[in-house]
Design a protein around this nucleic acid. Structure first.
Lengths: 108, 108
DNA sequence: AAATTACATCAACGAATATTGATTAGTCAA
DNA sequence: TTGACTAATCAATATTCGTTGATGTAATTT
């Protein structure tokens, strides 16, 4: 089993897992308007701070969002590169783009 | 809170959840080669039958795959329409396609 | 009808996740 | 330094998820 294929597989699953939550999808949607600090999001989403902090960490660990500290604020924003790669991945899943290597070693 | 937006949100999360598993991603990758029965997949993925049946149900419930019975075999295949919609959804997440309604009612 | 094949479902267990409230860690201004 | 403010982390709890092995079901063959 090719280690590279397995890594891509694991990474893909991680991305999708990060997106598999309504709160996190709302966060991402908010971030399409531009970078926001946590306090912005707590207002807009009417969610507890610790909860959003948790979900932001999940998104950040997955590489989907970036953060930037400015004084006492930490601004979160979308990671455009990762979302672009995600877009290509979904195209692969459709089987329409057969350029990249297969995710699964058994279905070459 | 618009019920439609919330439904779209929940549906999106369901899609991503279905994709947030390595076994299920492998299944989808296999299915890009065309429809397969469960026994095909147990061979190719070297996984227990009950395990694949569980994951196939998850994918089917999410609407990402379809099944078709032919005698004692049940053939699974990708649902191209759903994958197309998923593709558009990811474009929305990138914020590049601002045609569709926002996922989150608070970030209009 | 009985046996076989292909697949679904169930029960049970451990592992991972999400939520809440409280605490801790930085940052800044007075 | 004190206090106010932003955000991360911790502890405790409840829920969800994935796997396995056993059982159930439907279609086919003998």
């Amino acid at each position: 089993m090719p280690a590279t294929a397995h890594k891509k597989l694991a990474h893909s699953a991680k991305w999708f897992h990060a997106l598999a939550d309504e709160t996190r999808l709302q966060i991402i949607d908010c971030l399409t308007d531009g970078e926001q600090c946590v306090c912005d999001l707590t207002e807009k989403l009417a969610a507890a701070q610790s909860r959003l902090s948790f979900h932001l960490k999940t998104l950040k660990d997955a590489g989907l969002v970036k953060d930037r500290r400015d004084g006492r604020w930490i601004y979160y924003s979308l990671n455009g590169e990762a979302l672009e790669q995600l877009s290509e991945l979904v195209a692969d899943l459709k089987g329409q783009s057969r350029k990249g290597p297969s995710l699964s070693p058994c279905c070459k």
